[in-house]
Amino acid sequence: MQRFVSERILVQVGLLIVAVALFASTFGQSFSSSDLAQSPMFFPRIILVLWIGLGVISLIQSFKSDEKTRQIASWPRIGIVLVAALIYTNLIGSEGFFIPSVGFAVISLLAFGIRNPILVLLFAVLVPGSLVLLFNHTLGMPLPTSRFSYFF
């Protein structure tokens, strides 16, 4: 049973579902030309069919194979780093570059096992701070700013 619900199988099934859904979505739209070569969906359909075919082959290979996915050494660490990085890339647009970068650096360093608070704070402030100084004030290429930038 474990063979059918492993991470490997779930990812493969996920890829297959995405491909099938995208392929299905190509039929519900109307375009100005339905000529073979002129249709905007002509090429993507070929690629999606190949993707689906290869996905099925890969899935069958995964069922047959005993190969195991590499074990995650620490779920909390990967979880924290993953979520922090995704939130970080989302926040830069609304909160500017500096504040999310400091926050991300603190979380990431702690997750990777750095426990010296002075080192963490120094790194977290100095690295983004020097980048702001370099790009905003030396190179004249402003990084995204936050609502608090007005005070500085």
């Binding site: 991300f104 790194f123 790009f135 990084l143």
Partner: peptide
């Protein structure tokens, strides 16, 4: 240490990608 390198990579990559088109 790997921790400093990995953290710096994420921050530097964010800067790099932002400047390509200035698009969040």
């Amino acid at each position: 240490r790997e921790a400093f390198m990995m953290t710096a990579i994420v921050i530097l990559c964010a800067v790099g990608i932002y400047f390509v088109r200035g698009n969040v």
